[in-house]
């Protein structure tokens, strides 16, 4: 039940886009059509669920103070937490590269639909952000997995919703200087306000 609550909380109450603005760049750039937004959303869920638990294992068994004790007891005072940024981003870049290669080889159809988004995801703030939140909030492994699913789904939901709204916006009269980026920002703000009404839900 606690895990289910965490899932709901990360998808709706603390949505990565509306509450933390993570991944705004690709969110604004790739939300002109529902189809491409859907592709990017799925790719983000995939990479997020893969890398965040992986980074958890790296943190727990290599970086934390005393984490290296499984190699030799004398290493139990070593604290390598300051290396977290470099290792996290290398894991993400490496995992994305690996996923891209595996997909190209075994599932060409999926690769053709998601492939162009994968390099973009390496520098998507929401992926690294999820890993850093995992570190800061000291989640355990189960919580980390659930959190990564929730964060990925939250991003997916936000980008598909915005793309759907922007497709409809083509038929409305917007002042010229506000078209495009400006109105996308304001709509995101309004959607954020709508999502604020989820706050207070608890399980």
């Amino acid at each position: 039940m606690h895990l289910f609550g965490l899932l709901i909380k990360t998808i709706f109450v603390e949505n990565v886009i509306f509450a933390f603005f993570l991944g705004m760049c690709s969110y604004l750039a790739v939300s002109k059509q529902v189809k491409t937004a859907f592709g990017l959303g799925v790719a983000v869920i995939f990479v997020m669920v893969l890398t965040t638990p992986l980074n958890y294992l790296i943190l727990a068994y290599m970086l934390k103070e005393g984490a290296l004790a499984w190699i030799h007891p004398s290493l139990s005072t070593v604290d390598l937490t300051f290396l977290a940024f470099i290792l996290f981003i290398s894991t993400i870049a490496g995992a994305v590269q690996l996923v891209e290669m595996v997909m190209e080889k075994f599932t060409p159809a999926l690769y053709n639909s998601l492939g162009i988004f994968l390099p973009l995801i390496t520098v998507n703030c929401s992926i690294l952000g999820a890993s850093l939140f995992m570190q800061e909030r000291e989640y355990n492994f189960a919580e980390t997995t659930v959190f990564s699913i929730g964060a990925g789904v939250g991003f997916f939901l936000a980008i598909v919703l915005l793309a759907a709204i922007r497709e409809r916006l083509r038929y409305s009269k917007i002042p010229e200087p506000l078209q495009g980026l400006g109105i996308a920002m304001i709509i995101t703000g309004l959607m954020g306000m709508a999502f604020l009404s989820f706050s207070g839900i608890q399980f």
């Binding site: 200087p177 920002m185 995101t188 309004l190 604020l196």
Partner: peptide, 25 residues
């Protein structure tokens, strides 16, 4: 103090900037 405010402010800022310099539109 809530997150949406930042989006509104930047949205309006973009509006103002593009209104001033039409070549950015």
């Amino acid at each position: 103090m809530l997150p949406p405010a930042a989006l509104f402010i930047i949205g309006c800022f973009i509006w103002w900037q593009r209104n001033r310099n039409k070549s950015l539109i």
